[in-house]
Every structure is written in structure tokens, then in C-alpha cells.
Design a protein around this nucleic acid. Structure first.
Length: 855
DNA sequence: GTGCTGCATGGGC
DNA sequence: GGCCCATGCAGCA
């Protein structure tokens, strides 16, 4: 610690023994921010002439050439810290050249340099304020800040946090690995060349955490991977040379990761950190405001809210950057609201983010903004604003196609990054399952995991794994990683919007229309259908339930040939396949045997973004139209849905009148197993709605078979029930008893394990009037049914809950009565639910047939 | 009737 | 109390 300038009688310059004049002349501002070097006349004059370093530090290290005029500038000490500017491409410029270039190339949105000079050395008081401005507050546009940070702060991963963001609980519970950091006491660096990490305990709020000391260079040396920085902090700069140390939880090293990661950008954080650093550093002895504003205000209105801090991961960066050497600057992220992900196609941008990172717009119409998605597709959005309460509301318009192509929905997160040096905007995303694995969002996350991605994989908190074709899911055994900020009280979904929260609760159900669900059904793996011949017609029957297949988009090529587009699980590129090609639930480019040229994820996508957009749009339209048509067609008959017991643990909750669209862009209505030459009961029928409908009196083979099999089914059920009743005689009878068909009906010997949906066809021939009556019972689940029902289990639970004995539904046809939701969690096993389920199972089974065209 | 556009409203921070 | 922003809604095409 040097002698306070005020206490020394000699010139502050240690190389000068001259006494200070009275009053002493002020030199540069000292690091503590309040004092100034008190100099003798000579040294003061040299300082004011900008020749101090030249005179006294000529043999010191840290001299650099101005990139413009070549003039040597000492960048190695605090004395001249304000007389040069760091340039984005690297190097420095003297004040004079920088002023010229700034005037010539001034771009408020994308500054070319960082100015470290004060307006005048004789106004050293200006420094902190200017630095703060540069860092993103005050009149200087926020958009200047990213470059500022980019240039100075090696930040390997995730968003920086201010010291007071870290408390004990955060360290232990919230902080993700590598999120840990410690602001560095920059004055220490300046003086002794070592990078000392300020112990977090030092901060006023009692935070505890990392306490390490590393040589200055070890910051980079300890990196697991090199960091692409345009300007490395090799030269200790003024206080803005804030750096962060990170620990890698796996090895405890300080370091940075990510080959293309540029330091984190949140502009206000620059101010945030700088201001607080000054404040905190002085907090021990001088608990005053150092940056000109109360500490509390550091989190004030000018802050980029934590929920917008980019939490982009290495993998995502890698995905975005691909193999290029481009540097990616994560800008911000936003969780999609219902309206963002809705049809309107408007993505509301956080105001601060929009103003900081997007081009400045003065007219509400804004301007078109090209954004590239993670797959490389380029989209053009209209970046604009609406006047709103004397403020602005920034929106991106026309995002629907992009959001649909990424299959995003409310709760998912879109991230915005900038690709340097191109300056291209990159839009990435994280699926909700990756972002919300905790708290109230937990359930939704689990659901998503359950449907679209692996769950319960080895917990590796430091990594992310893909959960679906394009999103990521956190492999977080504790369910805390990705939800760190969301667990805060003021989290986006925590309390920000009840409406959004409700929507997320709805995510417990996978919104899936019945037709879409059918379209996704595939024969079970290793299936060996038993073929039964009835009157010359072959019937396939499966022992196991079908599985969910890969959604595709059916299209017609110019030549009229039917094809389907399928998206690769790994690279999310769309590949073309024959329309009748059967896809597993997961499909990757490697399986594209039919098109060797595109059997690798590295192969380009055939579809242009425009074509894809059209395709998705047309798919949606078709789906919507079909839904409407189907609704109209079935409106009189549809009160409940068919039991899709084949969906294993899924349940469909029909919601009449509500057309869900979540998967409509992907779900195909293609007959999942409609194969040429197949003579099964469905394949001999024309697709739903396309052929003549069968009359109730129809005696064709199909109708007769259906009827006979239904009778058999009912007889079996009756017999089973009788047996059970005999066994459980004396037991309490359930409140609702399945009505049974006429016992005199003959049994169909071929009915071994047929689909319960066959039964529905029977209700139309008048033989199941009882069922029709039960269908209209006052069940609280009227209009719905629970696909979680596993018939066998139901039978165990309720002696009268025979669901028909069949567990496998042939995923034929598109005969869904209406759309429904697939529910992943069964209703609570209350009596009411059980009974309701029984009722639903029975009635629903009778209402839906795999031969929907039979009337 | 439907979808789009621009603004208004109001809850939450 | 002011600002942000999710969403509602009227007007229009």
C-alpha cells in the first residue's frame, strides 16, 4: 500500500524527489477513485502534456504502437490509462486517432473501439463516470458495452454475476459449474502483476465462495480450451480489465472453456461489475458510493435483468459456430411467452436487450433484421417497436416460421448471439425441458423429458445433452442447473406471469391431437404380427402396443410423387424420404440409406429456409383444415375419444373444441402402416374421409368382421367378468358396471388381441346400444378419457373394469374422433377416477373405430 | 369470418 | 410510482 498522496510531502512520482508545491498539483486519479497523485510542478506538467510515461516509464514494459499513427503509447500503467483506446480488431489507438476514427465511423450500435481515455486528463474525476458510461449506463448507448466487455473480460461460460448475486446458497445450489467466478481486484493486478481474486467473503453481503490466487497469466493457462478473444487482457488496463475466474467443478481449475466463446456481453453488467467492484473494494474502510450511485441502484432499472442473461452452453456454441472460427458473442436470451410462441408471430423483445444489441431504430416500422438460426437457416424478421406509455415495446415480427421450425413453444428459451466478425445475429434455443427442470417448472420438464428425450441419464451437471431433435436438456441430477435464475423469486415463470405459469402447468400434457397421435404410432419394435385370415382377408395383430414414431411432413413433389420430410434427431436437418417409408421414433441422417448423399449430418439440407417455411405452413394449414373438417364430420357423434391404451403410459384428454397445435407442424396424418398390398382391415379401407362410408346395414367383409370381432370381444369380457365376480363374491360391487352385449352373440375365434377401437364400429350397428347409454353417463370425464389406462391393471383394480382384453391398437387409420391431449401422468387412483376411467375406457373404446369410414 | 396490426391495459417487478 | 412486458382487443383488410 502506497503512502496516501495527501500524507507525503514529496511528489507522488517515486522517481522524483521533488517536494510537492502547496497546494500540490493533481495528476492522475488513483485507483481508489477518490485521490489523485499529487505531483510536483515538473511531473504535473509532464503528465498534463502526456509525457509522463515517456519520461519516467520509457524502459518499462507495456509500450504499444497506435494502430493509426504508430505513436507509442504506454499501456502498462495507470498514468496513461486514459490516453488510448482498445480496438475491436486488437491493438490500441491513441486518443487523437481514436477520436478521429470514432467521428468517421461512429456507429452507435457496433462501436469499433473502446475508449479508455478521459475527455481531459486534467479532469480525472470524469474517469469513473465515463468508464461507467462506456460500460453501459448513462447517456452512452448500451450497445457500446458488449464490445467493452468483449475486449476485456474473458468469460468462459454463462452469464457473469455480480458479487452480490452470489450467496452461499447460490454457490452450493444455484450456480452451475463454471458459473462460479470472482471478480478480480484489478488494482492488485495493476500493481504487482498478479491476478488476485478477491475473496467473495470480502463482499459486503457476506457472500462466501471461491478464494484463490493465481498468477496473472494463469487465467488463460488454466483454460481447458483456448478462448477466442479479440483482445486478450494481456495488458493490464484500467479498472475495466475486470476478469472472472471460473472453476471447473470437475477439476477445480480456474479456467475458461469453449473454443469460440467470446466474453459475456450483458452491457449493464459492465457497469454492474465495475461499479460494484469499486464499491466493494472500498467497502471495508469506505462504505460509500464509489460509482456515483447507490449500490442498490446497481440492480436498478438500467440493469439487464438476470432472466435475460445468456446462459448459452458450450455445446450450443459449438452447434452454432460449427466448424468455423467465428467468435460467438451471446447477447441475451428470453423465455418464450404464450404470445411469443403463438400464432401472431410476434416475439416481444426485452427493451434493454433490443436497445443494446439490435440496431437502433427511430421509426416504429423498424427494419428487417436477418437472423440465422442454429441450423444455419437464415430468417428475416421485422425488428420494430410500438410506442407504449411513453416508452417503446420492441418486437420481432414474423418469427412464427422460425419458431415452428425449431419446434418451440411457450416456456422454451430463445437465445440471441452475435457471430463475429460477420456481425451476424444468431438465434438459438433451448427447450423447456432443458431450462426448467426445477420447482414448479419441474413437472413440465419431466413431461418433456418423458416424451421427447431421455430422462434420468447419468447426471453430469457440467454438460448438456440433446433431448430432442434440436433442443437440449440438462443432464442434471439435481434438477437445479438450468433453473438457477428461474428459481429466483422474480423469475420469469416464477411469478412474472400467472398466465404463463398456467400455460406451463398445461405442459403436463403433451398437447397432441388424436389424429396426430395416431399418425405417430408405429408397430412395436421387433414386432411379429400374427396374421389372421378372415374370409380371405388378412388381419395383423400385435401382441405389444405400438410405439410413437417420428413425425414427418407429407408433401407432393413437382412430379406428383408423394414424399415425406423428416427431421434428423441430431442435426435437425430435414431429409426427404418416400411417403410410405416407415420411420422409427428417432431417426437420424445416418439412417438415410435411401439417399447416401444425405446420410450424414454434414450434408446440406435440401430445403431452403423458404421452402421449409412453406412446408411447415402448409403442414399446419393442412392439419388445421383436416381438424376442422373432421370436427364437422364427427361433431354429432363425438362425445368422447377412443381409448388409446396403446400409448402405454400416455393418456389423451380430449378437449372438444380446442384445437391444439403443438405438434401439428410435425405430426403426419399419414397412415402409419398403410402399406401397398396389405390387406388388413384398415388397409383395405380408403383413408379416413376419402372413401364412401359404410352404412350400418353394410355386409361387406370388413363390416362383418368388425361386428363379429366385437361380439367376440364382448363375450370374452363378459366371461371374464363372470369369473371375477365368482372369485370376488362378497366383495363390494363397483358403482358403475359395464353393460354387456348380447350373450348370444357368437364368438369370433380370431379375436386374440385385437384393438379395442374395433369396438367402436360396433356401436353403429345397433348391437351396442347399452354402450351408447353408458357413453352418455354423467361421468365427470365426459368428453374425455384417460389413455393411461392399462387394461390389465384396470382389471386388477376393478373387477368390472374389463376394458376388452385387448391392449394393442393397430395404429391404422386416421379415425380419431377429435383431437386430444396426451397426458403423461395418470390421474390419481381415486375411486372416482378409477370408475371414471372404467367408464371412459369402455365407452371410448366403443366410440372409436379403426375403420372410421364405417358409419 | 378470419387474420393482421397497432395500441391499450394491467399485473408484476 | 414508474417501467416493463404479456396479453387483450378494436379496427381494418
Amino acid at each position: 500500500m502506497s503512502v496516501p498522496a495527501a500524507l507525503s510531502r514529496s511528489c507522488y512520482n517515486p522517481q522524483c524527489k521533488e517536494p510537492k508545491p502547496e497546494p500540490p498539483r493533481k495528476g492522475w486519479r488513483l485507483r481508489n477513485g477518490d485521490c489523485y497523485a499529487e505531483l510536483c510542478d515538473r511531473c504535473a506538467s509532464l503528465f498534463e502534456e502526456g509525457k509522463f510515461c515517456e519520461t519516467f516509464h520509457s524502459k518499462a514494459s507495456g509500450w504499444r504502437d497506435c494502430e493509426s499513427c504508430g505513436k507509442q503509447v504506454h499501456c502498462g500503467c495507470i498514468v496513461s490509462a486514459h490516453s488510448f483506446a482498445l480496438l475491436d480488431p486488437g491493438g490500441i489507438e491513441c486518443v487523437a486517432c481514436n477520436r478521429k476514427s470514432t467521428l468517421l465511423t461512429a456507429s452507435p450500435a457496433w462501436p469499433t473501439s473502446i475508449l479508455f481515455n478521459a475527455s481531459s486528463p486534467d479532469k480525472p474525476k470524469d474517469h469513473p463516470a465515463k468508464l461507467n458510461q462506456l460500460a453501459g449506463s448513462g447517456p452512452v448507448p448500451w450497445r457500446q458495452a458488449p464490445a467493452l466487455f468483449n475486449s476485456c473480460i474473458p468469460r468462459p461460460d454463462l452469464q457473469p454475476r455480480s458479487p452480490y448475486e452470489i450467496d452461499g446458497s447460490i454457490i452450493s445450489d444455484r450456480l452451475m459449474p463454471r458459473e462460479r467466478y470472482t471478480p478480480i481486484d484489478f488494482p492488485e493486478r495493476l500493481t504487482n502483476g498478479n491476478m488476485k481474486h478477491v475473496p467473495i467473503e470480502k463482499f459486503e453481503n457476506g457472500n462466501s465462495g471461491l478464494k484463490t490466487e493465481e498468477p496473472q497469466n494463469s487465467f488463460m493457462n488454466n483454460s481447458q480450451q483456448p478462448v477466442s478473444l479479440k483482445e486478450e487482457p494481456s495488458t493490464p488496463q484500467f479498472g475495466l480489465s475486470t476478469a472472472y475466474a471460473f472453476t471447473n467443478e470437475t477439476n477445480g481449475h480456474l479456467g475458461v472453456t469453449g473454443p469460440h466463446f467470446r466474453p459475456a456481453p450483458p452491457p449493464t453488467l459492465a457497469k454492474h461489475f465495475y461499479g460494484n467492484m469499486l464499491y466493494e473494494i472500498n467497502s471495508s474502510g469506505e462504505n460509500q458510493i464509489r460509482n456515483g450511485r447507490p449500490r442498490g441502484d446497481a440492480r436498478g432499472k438500467n440493469q439487464l435483468l438476470p432472466r435475460y442473461w445468456p446462459r448459452i452452453t458450450d455445446q450450443e456454441l459449438q452447434q452454432i459456430s460449427g466448424e468455423s472460427n467465428s467468435v460467438i458473442t451471446p447477447l441475451f436470451e428470453k423465455m418464450l411467452s404464450a404470445s411469443d410462441a403463438g400464432k401472431i408471430g410476434r416475439l416481444v423483445l426485452p427493451k434493454k436487450c433490443a436497445e443494446a444489441y439490435f440496431p437502433q431504430i427511430s421509426q416504429p416500422e423498424g427494419l428487417p433484421l436477418k437472423v440465422q438460426d442454429a441450423k444455419g437457416s437464415e430468417w428475416t424478421f421485422q425488428f420494430r417497436f410500438w410506442p407504449n406509455n411513453n416508452s417503446r415495446m420492441y418486437v420481432l415480427e414474423g418469427v412464427t416460421p422460425c419458431i415452428q421450425s425449431m419446434q418451440l413453444q411457450a416456456g422454451d428459451i430463445v437465445t440471441f448471439s452475435r457471430l463475429e466478425p460477420e456481425g451476424k445475429l444468431i438465434m438459438g434455443f433451448r427447450k423447456a425441458s432443458a431450462a426448467q427442470p426445477s420447482d414448479q417448472e419441474n413437472e413440465a420438464g419431466k413431461v418433456f423429458n418423458g416424451v421427447s428425450g431421455p430422462v434420468g441419464e447419468a447426471a453430469d451437471p457440467s454438460s448438456w445433452s440433446k433431448t430432442d431433435k434440436s433442443g437440449y436438456v440438462a443432464k442434471d441430477g439435481h434438477g437445479t442447473k438450468a433453473s438457477l435464475p428461474r428459481r429466483r423469486k422474480n423469475s420469469t415463470l416464477g411469478s412474472r406471469s400467472k398466465r404463463l405459469r398456467i400455460d406451463r402447468e398445461d405442459l403436463i400434457e403433451l398437447k397432441l391431437t388424436w389424429q396426430e397421435a395416431q399418425g405417430l404410432l408405429r408397430p412395436p419394435p421387433n414386432h411379429v404380427p400374427s396374421v389372421v385370415v378372415i374370409e380371405g382377408f388378412e388381419f395383423e395383430e400385435y401382441e405389444d402396443a405400438p410405439v410413437l414414431g417420428k413425425p414427418t411432413i407429407i408433401a407432393t413433389e413437382n412430379g406428383g410423387e408423394k414424399i415425406q420430410w423428416v427431421q434428423c434427431e441430431d442435426c435437425s436437418k430435414w431429409r426427404k424420404l418416400p411417403a410410405d417409408y416407415l420411420l422409427p421414433s428417432k431417426w437420424t441422417c445416418a439412417e438415410n440409406k435411401l439417399d447416401p448423399e444425405r446420410s450424414s449430418c454434414s450434408a446440406a439440407q435440401e430445403l431452403t429456409s423458404e421452402e421449409l417455411e412453406d412446408l411447415l405452413r402448409s403442414s399446419n394449414t393442412a392439419s388445421s383444415d383436416k381438424m376442422k373438417a373432421h370436427k364437422e364430420e364427427n361433431a354429432p357423434n363425438v362425445e368422447a375419444l377412443e381409448g388409446l391404451d396403446t400409448l402405454a403410459n400416455l393418456a389423451i384428454l380430449g378437449e372438444e373444441g380446442e384445437a391444439t397445435q403443438t405438434l401439428s407442424s410435425q405430426a403426419t396424418t399419414k397412415h402409419p402402416r398403410h402399406r401397398p398390398g396389405c390387406s388388413c382391415i384398415v388397409c383395405i379401407q380408403p383413408p379416413s374421409g376419402k372413401g364412401p362410408k359404410h352404412k350400418q346395414t353394410c355386409t361387406c367383409n370388413v363390416c362383418l368382421t368388425v361386428k363379429r370381432r366385437f361380439r367376440t370381444l364382448m363375450m370374452r369380457r363378459e366371461r371374464k367378468q363372470s369369473e371375477k365376480e365368482a372369485e370376488s363374491s362378497g366383495k363390494k360391487q363397483p358403482s358403475q358396471v359395464m353393460p354387456l352385449p348380447n350373450k348370444s352373440q357368437e364368438e369370433d375365434p380370431t379375436l386374440s388381441n385385437s384393438s379395442p377401437s374395433l369396438k367402436r364400429a360396433m356401436e353403429h350397428d345397433g348391437s351396442s346400444e347399452e354402450h351408447n347409454r353408458s357413453k352418455t353417463s354423467d361421468s365427470p370425464f365426459k368428453g374425455q378419457f384417460d389413455l393411461n389406462i392399462q387394461p390389465e391393471r384396470e382389471e386388477e383394480m376393478s373387477p368390472c373394469s374389463d376394458s376388452g382384453g385387448g391392449t394393442a391398437v393397430k395404429p391404422h387409420g386416421e379415425g380419431g374422433a377429435t383431437e386430444g391431449h396426451v397426458q403423461l401422468h395418470p390421474p390419481p387412483p381415486s375411486d372416482e377416477n378409477q370408475n371414471s376411467s372404467v367408464d371412459k375406457t369402455t365407452s371410448n373404446s366403443l366410440q372409436e373405430a379403426e375403420v372410421p369410414s364405417i358409419t
